[in-house]
Simulated assay, not measured.
Amino acid sequence: MSDEHRETGTGWPEPVEPVRPAGEPDPRPDAPDADELSPLVPGDPGEPSPESGDDDGATVNLAEVASAEAGSSAQPSDSPSAGPAGRRVSSAAVMIAALLALLGFTLVVQLKTTSTDPTLAATRQEDLVRIFSDLDSREKRLQQDIEGLEDSQRQLRSGEQGRQAALEEATKRADELGILAGTLPARGPGLAVRFEPGGKPIRADRVLDAVQELRGAGAEAMQISGGDRASARIIASTYFLDGAGDVLVVDGRPLTGPYTITVIGDPETMRTALNIPGGVAASVRGDGGNVSVEDREVAEVSALHAPLKLEHARPVS
């Protein structure tokens, strides 16, 4: 037995194994193959020895590794991800960009919806031509009214002739107001519009629609007649009601069909207004009835409307 022993703490000394040079194989018959040995040996300074049982050394080594990793990550100049992190876009900027894009899309849709009229887009070419002609006629008529009023203004400002012109203008204005109020008869070029019922009677709302379209086309005086030749003057306050059976009540006066509206105004403009797609003529035909329009070189509106009896108002002389 060799004299070299090491202390085991059990009271029995244990012989110390001889140290072999590096790379020399173990001569013992039960020694493991050198290729099967773990590269980590107890003497490796990076790993703690399993026989030492010293936990303080392992703790120190882990702490050193952690501090080394923290030190390397704390240097922004050496980290490859430091650049992209500084250029990262915040969520608030993304939200603002999305809201601006949504606002722009909404504005574009609103402009397209406002500038596009689905009714005119589905209208035929000949109907668009008639609508344009109607608008052109209205513009010419309004321009003539403006010129007439300007001429009257010049005459009223010209001394003695102005006084005479003022009297004539007042008389003319009184006649016009009398025609509009239905207290004076009128004649002039116009139309005779006849409503003939079919499977359904002519309703009051259809007649009212015809009156409104004629007024919009420049009608100046109107009256409605029934099949029994009873007539009623149509003015601004005229009302229409559906009576019992096929009777139409106009200002409290019952009329039986068919009905004829005699109107004074520009025949071409009023005819165009009545024949607009979806207008009164199309509505009556859709109910099974018929609307016929006849031009009159001289249309007479002779039915008068009883003037209101004034109780409190008196003219001022």
Rank of each mutant, 00 (worst) to 15 (best):
W12F: 15
E24G: 05
A281Q: 08
L214K: 03
P254D: 13
V129K: 14
G265T: 12
Q161E: 14
L308A: 07
T113S: 03
A68D: 10
T59D: 09
D251Q: 15
G278E: 08
H305S: 06
S225Y: 01
T183R: 04
R28C: 00
I96W: 02
M1N: 11
S72Q: 07
V249Q: 10
V249N: 08
S302F: 01
S152V: 09
A181R: 04
E69R: 08
G9V: 12
S137I: 13
L40R: 12
P189M: 03
S137D: 13
G288A: 03
R87E: 02
L128S: 15
D242S: 08
S81F: 12
R314M: 02
P32K: 04
R130E: 07
V301C: 00
Q110H: 08
G11Q: 15
V291N: 01
D175L: 06
L142N: 11
V108S: 02
E168Q: 15
L62F: 15
A181V: 00
E64F: 12
E196S: 12
A181T: 01
I224A: 02
S152G: 14
V94M: 05
M1G: 14
D145P: 09
G57S: 13
A92F: 13
Q125C: 10
S49H: 11
R215Y: 11
Q110L: 11
T106Q: 03
L180T: 03
A281N: 03
I235K: 06
G53R: 10
R88I: 03
A313K: 05
A97E: 05
A217M: 08
A58Q: 09
V280R: 00
V19H: 15
L120N: 08
R20E: 07
G286H: 03
L135M: 13
E160W: 07
R88H: 13
P25S: 05
F240R: 01
A204Q: 03
V109C: 09
A101F: 08
E64Y: 05
A192N: 08
I179V: 12
A74R: 04
V60K: 13
L308N: 04
N290C: 06
H305A: 09
V65F: 01
P45C: 06
A101S: 13
A299N: 07
D287I: 00
D55S: 09
P21I: 11
R87V: 03
D287M: 00
P39E: 10
G43D: 14
L128E: 15
I261T: 05
R173P: 00
S283D: 12
E311C: 02
D266T: 04
E294S: 07
D127A: 12
A98C: 06
R157L: 10
A58S: 09
S73L: 11
S133Y: 04
P48Y: 09
L310C: 00
T119V: 12
R130S: 07
K309G: 05
T106I: 04
E196C: 01
